[in-house]
Computed example of a mutant assay.
Amino acid sequence: MSDGLAGLRREVAVGCRVMAHRGLVENILGHISVRLDGERALVRCRGPEEAGLGFTTPDDVRVVDLDSGEVIDDPAGDYAAPSELPIHTSVLAAHRDVDCVVHAHPPDVVVASLAGFAFEPIFGAYDIPAAHLAAAGIPVHPRSVLIRTDDLAAEMVASLGNAVALVLKGHGVVTIGADVAEAVLRALQLDTLARIHLRVCTAGTIPEAIPSTDLAELPDLGGAFNRETLWRHHQVALEHDGHGLN
């Protein structure tokens, strides 16, 4: 999916724009990181003309030292790593098989978390990847704080455990993946779970998890459909609505 460092910068920028386009972030909130090696990661940083995630360019995606948190490819000092960089550094350190970390603030997830929603598979075929994500378990981190210290990040990583998606109560989400597409799609699936739950509640009833027999009937449609095709859809929709990089 990438063409060297320039391609990875572009992937992160597109991922940020997709999240903004789909309402997962507002204004300048949220960020994405991609591991480069054991010491460095590409991180969506904030520059001197910050305009928000919906307008992210590859220039906003900078190489950051995972130990010091410093932006190391910005001699002029124009770019700063996000204050919640410990979200990324702690997850990448704890999960060596993870190469991408997403942090977003989907409003529906925030509302659902404050309402005490258990993120269960309340639907099936409507969104099979989201149902499987919920069935695997989506923990909720109980603290509604800016995660800007190693200690706070350690608590968050403990809440994440071996899951691939974490709800931060009253705050947002953290999702992980092998690349930008996988991590962002998981954030979108989590948002779908929250949105449908809230709509059911608005209709006057409390949603329940689907039966295990129904869950067992949900097929894995494969990465070509669930990932490549779906991610292509989001990129094409971005371009169609005039929010693409080109």
Rank of each mutant, 00 (worst) to 15 (best):
G4P: 11
G4T: 02
G4N: 08
L5F: 07
L8I: 05
L8K: 12
L8H: 11
L8F: 13
R9C: 05
R9F: 00
R10H: 00
V12I: 03
A13L: 10
C16M: 09
C16G: 02
C16T: 00
M19G: 00
M19H: 00
R22C: 01
L24E: 00
N27T: 11
I28E: 02
H31S: 00
V34F: 10
R35E: 01
R35H: 00
L36W: 12
L36D: 10
L36Q: 08
D37F: 08
R40G: 04
R44C: 14
C45P: 13
E49V: 08
E50Y: 02
L53Y: 01
D60S: 03
D60M: 09
V61Q: 09
V61E: 00
R62F: 02
V63K: 08
V64F: 02
V64N: 09
D65Q: 04
L66E: 04
S68K: 15
G69N: 13
P75C: 07
A76Q: 14
G77C: 07
G77K: 03
Y79V: 03
A80P: 03
A80H: 07
P86R: 03
P86V: 12
I87W: 06
H88R: 08
T89V: 01
T89S: 13
S90D: 12
V91N: 03
A94M: 11
H95C: 14
D97V: 04
P106W: 01
D108H: 14
V109K: 07
V109W: 08
V110Q: 12
V110I: 15
S113K: 08
L114D: 05
G116W: 11
G116K: 01
F119I: 05
F119R: 07
I122K: 04
A125I: 14
Y126R: 15
P129W: 00
A130D: 08
H132D: 10
L133S: 04
A135I: 11
A135M: 06
A135C: 13
G137N: 06
P139H: 09
P139K: 03
P139D: 09
P142Q: 11
L146P: 15
I147G: 05
D151G: 07
L152R: 15
L152D: 13
M156G: 05
N162C: 15
A163I: 09
L166F: 13
V167R: 11
L168S: 06
K169E: 05
G170N: 09
G170V: 01
G172A: 01
V173Y: 11
T175D: 10
T175N: 08
I176A: 06
G177F: 05
G177T: 08
E182F: 04
E182S: 05
E182A: 10
A183C: 09
V184H: 06
V184R: 05
L185H: 01
R186S: 04
A187I: 01
Q189K: 12
L190P: 06
L190M: 12
D191H: 11
L193S: 06
A194D: 13
L198H: 12
G204W: 03
I206E: 15
I206H: 15
I206R: 14
I206G: 12
A209I: 07
I210E: 07
L215T: 10
A216I: 00
P219K: 09
D220V: 12
G222N: 09
F225G: 03
F225P: 07
N226S: 12
E228H: 14
L230G: 10
H234L: 06
Q235A: 10
A237E: 12
A237W: 13
L238I: 10
D241F: 00
G242L: 01
L245I: 02
